[in-house]
Amino acid sequence: FALGLLSWMYGRPTEPTVAFLEKKFAKVPDILGANLAAFKAGWNYGETTETFVVQYEIKPAKMNAGTYRNITGNLALSYGLVAAGVRSGLPVFLGSYPITPASDILHELSKHKAFGVTTLQAEDEIAGIGAAIGASFAGALGVTTTSGPGIALKSEAIGLAVMTELPLLVIDVQRGGPSTGLPTKTEQADLLQAMYGRNGEAPVP
């Protein structure tokens, strides 16, 4: 419904959306019918009720012809880790436990075994960083990814890496708020935790 209303409000053509729904739900006609009905109801609501006094038109952006890539921070970071492994001549090992918004790094790196990348989806945050420390001890580029709550769980193991002087790359893709926070909202509030959040004076540069 909302998508149909927005399509009307911004003057967007409905044909691509209808075609997408028909393709996606081709094997389940009942769900297809429900989605099409909701989409069209939203468009008709905007068209007929006169609730909204304005419409908007967004003209196509002027872009040079060519091939464009849609890239996120997590994807760029993943490519950087692959490049770091290739340039250093070290195998990359990622020990991680899925957590929003860092999980995309695990998903992407798992596609690059051909570049010497090994990924482990561990049973929890502590096991993930423990495996990464073990990989570092064995000579690999040890990496672990997480978000703020995971940094709290990994703090003792980070202290172990500091104490044993093992290189370890800890990636904190931050989410908003304390405790479990807001998984789908990114934020930059973990600086002090990342630098000093360990016992026994084990700061991380």
Results as ranks from 00 to 15, higher is better:
residue 2 A to H: 13
residue 2 A to F: 12
residue 3 L to D: 11
residue 5 L to P: 04
residue 5 L to Y: 14
residue 6 L to H: 09
residue 7 S to N: 14
residue 7 S to R: 14
residue 8 W to A: 02
residue 8 W to M: 03
residue 11 G to T: 06
residue 11 G to Q: 10
residue 14 T to S: 09
residue 16 P to Q: 08
residue 16 P to E: 07
residue 16 P to Y: 07
residue 17 T to L: 14
residue 17 T to N: 08
residue 17 T to W: 09
residue 20 F to A: 14
residue 20 F to R: 13
residue 21 L to R: 05
residue 22 E to I: 07
residue 25 F to I: 02
residue 26 A to Y: 11
residue 27 K to Q: 13
residue 27 K to W: 10
residue 31 I to E: 14
residue 36 L to T: 03
residue 38 A to F: 12
residue 41 A to W: 12
residue 42 G to L: 10
residue 45 Y to L: 09
residue 50 E to L: 11
residue 52 F to I: 09
residue 52 F to G: 05
residue 52 F to P: 00
residue 54 V to T: 15
residue 59 K to G: 01
residue 59 K to A: 08
residue 61 A to W: 11
residue 67 T to K: 15
residue 67 T to C: 08
residue 69 R to L: 07
residue 69 R to M: 06
residue 70 N to D: 11
residue 71 I to A: 15
residue 71 I to L: 15
residue 72 T to P: 04
residue 76 A to N: 06
residue 79 Y to A: 12
residue 79 Y to S: 11
residue 79 Y to W: 14
residue 79 Y to E: 15
residue 81 L to G: 02
residue 81 L to S: 00
residue 82 V to M: 01
residue 83 A to R: 09
residue 86 V to I: 14
residue 88 S to K: 07
residue 88 S to M: 08
residue 91 P to C: 06
residue 91 P to I: 02
residue 91 P to H: 01
residue 92 V to P: 00
residue 93 F to A: 10
residue 93 F to E: 03
residue 94 L to M: 06
residue 95 G to M: 03
residue 96 S to C: 10
residue 97 Y to T: 05
residue 98 P to N: 06
residue 106 L to K: 02
residue 107 H to K: 15
residue 108 E to Y: 06
residue 108 E to P: 01
residue 110 S to K: 09
residue 111 K to A: 15
residue 111 K to I: 13
residue 113 K to E: 13
residue 115 F to Y: 15
residue 115 F to W: 08
residue 119 T to L: 02
residue 120 L to G: 06
residue 121 Q to I: 08
residue 121 Q to T: 11
residue 122 A to W: 02
residue 124 D to L: 10
residue 126 I to N: 02
residue 126 I to L: 10
residue 127 A to L: 06
residue 128 G to N: 04
residue 130 G to R: 01
residue 132 A to D: 02
residue 132 A to Y: 00
residue 133 I to T: 00
residue 134 G to P: 01
residue 136 S to K: 02
residue 137 F to L: 15
residue 139 G to D: 05
residue 140 A to G: 07
residue 144 T to C: 03
residue 145 T to W: 04
residue 145 T to I: 09
residue 148 G to D: 01
residue 148 G to N: 04
residue 148 G to H: 04
residue 149 P to A: 06
residue 153 L to E: 04
residue 153 L to P: 03
residue 154 K to W: 00
residue 160 L to Q: 07
residue 161 A to V: 01
residue 163 M to G: 14
residue 163 M to A: 15
residue 165 E to M: 07
residue 166 L to W: 00
residue 175 R to A: 05
residue 176 G to V: 04
residue 177 G to D: 09
residue 177 G to S: 10
residue 178 P to G: 07
residue 180 T to L: 14
residue 182 L to Q: 15
residue 183 P to E: 05
residue 183 P to T: 07
residue 183 P to G: 04
residue 183 P to S: 12
residue 183 P to K: 03
residue 186 T to L: 09
residue 187 E to A: 13
residue 187 E to H: 10
residue 190 D to M: 05
residue 191 L to N: 12
residue 193 Q to C: 06
residue 194 A to T: 00
residue 195 M to F: 12
residue 196 Y to P: 03
residue 197 G to L: 02
residue 199 N to E: 13
residue 200 G to H: 14
residue 200 G to C: 13
residue 200 G to E: 11
residue 201 E to Q: 15
residue 201 E to I: 10
residue 204 V to F: 05
residue 205 P to V: 09
